[in-house]
Design a binder for these strands. Structure first.
Lengths: 371, 371
DNA sequence: CTGAGAAATGCAAACGTTTGCATTAAATTG
DNA sequence: CAATTTAATGCAAACGTTTGCATTTCTCAG
């Protein structure tokens, strides 16, 4: 009958075996100078005594926590959720834990989170910023201490740091040009707050596509607001409050696209006949809605994997600043569906649309340097 | 110009101010015996020197990490994602961090996760188990060390521990009875692996409803399999491979319900006219699909809040075993939609259906003791 | 056997906090 | 103003590891 309380420590093992703590420690960590025999003895005893390493003690001594921090706006949205999933699973393979935090798109919260994660002495940090983060100085501590830090998706414009992001310019461009190809001449763009890089770039892509196709850019055809369902609905009301109706809508977010679609259905505006719709992110919901919605896939799997790869890379090697501050672009792909006149999918279960693995390969090559 | 490397510690502050480390520590923690003046001096200096507390050192000394562990099957599914969101945000208010882990429904991974979370010396643990976890002994360590542990949703049947779960029996019952009320006489039930308590209870509810309404329980009308899209599609193929077709289907999962609906639409089976469908969890997707799908809401917000409340409770007070091993039931609610002949929603943006706050209040009262 | 080199083990400090107890300084009282 | 209480500060140990260096124990050639 073992004593009730009391965690077993390596000194307990050492005593029991009449060894020094150092040998026990080394034995457990498979240090080369320890004989196979003692290793066996130690491990067996550890098991028998129910020993569990104390990560905090080790972390304190080693100055590493084996924890990675992740800050995202919210994990209930498709894209960040998908990324978080990948990151979590991937990190596990490397023996790292993940602390996931949500800023809820509040700068104040983001600042606090950065501080607590720093206090936890995370070995690395991945961040997708708030919609309104333009000053990134609350991440300075990490840079000062040389803690690897990677921004993704919603990234800073001129904060010197490693960035992994989708090709938002191209995404905006392709989405718009696709609408043009399908015959649209009057295309509304629903954008987000321009404090966020994603939206400025997609908007730029939109403009570029219009220009290339000799369509005028009209200010009153572009909307800016936080991309909630409520705002989307209001935007729809404004858009369809007076004729002429647009014949195409590029929403920079699938939630918005879906809401617009619902509005159209409710008001007898036929999609795609009267008005075509394109969303962004390839949220699985775009596929189950009727009609299904064309969207821009951002390859969250690829992005997640590359975030982890970058972090592990930075942790292992003390990297040259060149890499610490480089930018990687993950490709995007337009997924055509019914809302722009595409065919309904063959069978909903095994969509032929995207082969992630292939895209993956392409993505890995598409590493660009920051200009 | 301050020295490049080197984290500032409280001893640096102490030296700078010619104080002892203990006073500095106490000052930073607002200990009552420290004069207001020194507190001010210390805090100011701390700020000036860019001091950041080291949570690992404090944790080691205090034997508490201020970290809560969470193990869920996967965070990309609606229900666990929703719960995780709530838990994370709620914990933040209490000054706790959350380490979210996914077992990917693998028992092996769940065991490993339990071990690493224990190594991190989490102050509490919340778990929704694997589909196949029947032996829970890998959580024994936590119980031995008196680390608070709460199971939710997918909970053990006879492992002595705090449990917070939805009223699955009632959910299964209501879903089935609703179909009966709508005129169904031949109701298929698509269930999950019976190793998981959720499914046995919902199945029991289904049976009960049939019996109460004098409908026969037919073995070949119930399906068991992991609730993936692929399996759902196959189930649909079997269900509709020969007449008579069922006139109602109760799927114990919204993904399955949605897939069945897609199958029906593709094969010209009219929903709800020919066949009615009820899902489970009230995944937002059930609302945007056409026709929208009746489902059972599980109040993830309520459940998440109560998980956190229970954990904080257990951490604060060294609780009597009675509470540590009690069971709480969170109510459920049937949300009627078009797939069972309900009216289409008024406006998709502000559905009148559920007022979470109100339900919340109801839920808090509905604490049942284990029989 | 002896001695040298290699292999295995041990010593003790360090990581950055917190905290019980001892001590000193300040305030209060008779 | 001495004596006593109260307020403020300091000392040093402890939390559980890891690791550089010193020491001991082998192994084996000469």
């Amino acid at each position: 009958m073992s004593s009730l309380r009391s965690e077993k420590t390596i000194v307990d093992i050492a005593e029991e075996l009449e060894l020094s703590v150092s040998t026990v420690s080394r034995a457990l960590n498979d240090h080369p100078n320890i004989s196979a025999k003692t290793k066996e003895r130690v491990k067996k005893m550890a098991r028998k005594m129910g020993y569990r390493p104390n990560a905090m003690a080790a972390g304190l001594r080693n100055n590493k926590s084996k924890i990675i921090g992740l800050i995202v706006p919210r994990i209930s949205m498709f894209f960040p959720a998908a990324i978080s999933t990948i990151i979590q699973n991937k990190l596990q393979e490397y023996g790292y834990n993940l602390i996931i935090c949500q800023s809820n798109d509040s700068l104040q919260q983001e600042i606090e989170l950065a501080n607590t994660l720093y206090s936890a002495r995370v070995d690395g940090l991945a961040v997708s910023a708030t919609l309104y983060t333009t000053d990134f100085s609350h991440f300075d501590i990490f840079k000062q201490q040389n803690t690897p830090i990677v921004f993704f998706d919603r990234t800073p414009k001129d904060y010197n740091v490693k960035v992994i992001k989708g090709d938002d310019f191209l995404g905006g461009f392709k989405a718009t040009e696709h609408l043009v190809e399908k015959g649209c001449k009057d295309i509304v763009h629903i954008s987000g707050p321009l404090t966020c890089n994603l939206y400025t770039e997609r908007l730029a892509g939109y403009k570029e596509a219009l220009q290339k196709n000799k369509l005028p850019y009209k200010k009153n055809r572009v909307f800016f607001h936080e991309l909630t369902r409520e705002n989307a609905w209001q935007a729809a009301e404004r858009i369809f409050s007076q004729k002429p109706y647009p014949d195409g809508i590029f929403a920079t977010n699938d939630t918005t696209a879906i809401t617009i679609l619902e509005y159209c259905r409710k008001h007898g505006i036929r999609v795609p006949e009267d008005c075509k719709i394109v969303g962004y992110s390839n949220d699985p919901r775009t596929e189950i809605v009727t009609p299904s919605i064309t969207s821009v896939d951002q390859y969250p799997t690829t992005m997640g994997e590359r975030i982890v790869a970058a972090l592990m890379d930075l942790i292992q090697a003390r990297h040259p600043a060149a890499y610490r501050h480089s930018q990687e672009i993950v490709p995007i792909q337009l997924v055509e569906r019914e809302s722009t006149g595409g065919m309904p999918k063959e069978t909903p279960v095994a969509p032929a649309g995207i082969k992630v693995s292939a895209a993956n390969g392409a993505a890995v090559k598409a590493v660009k340097k920051k200009k």
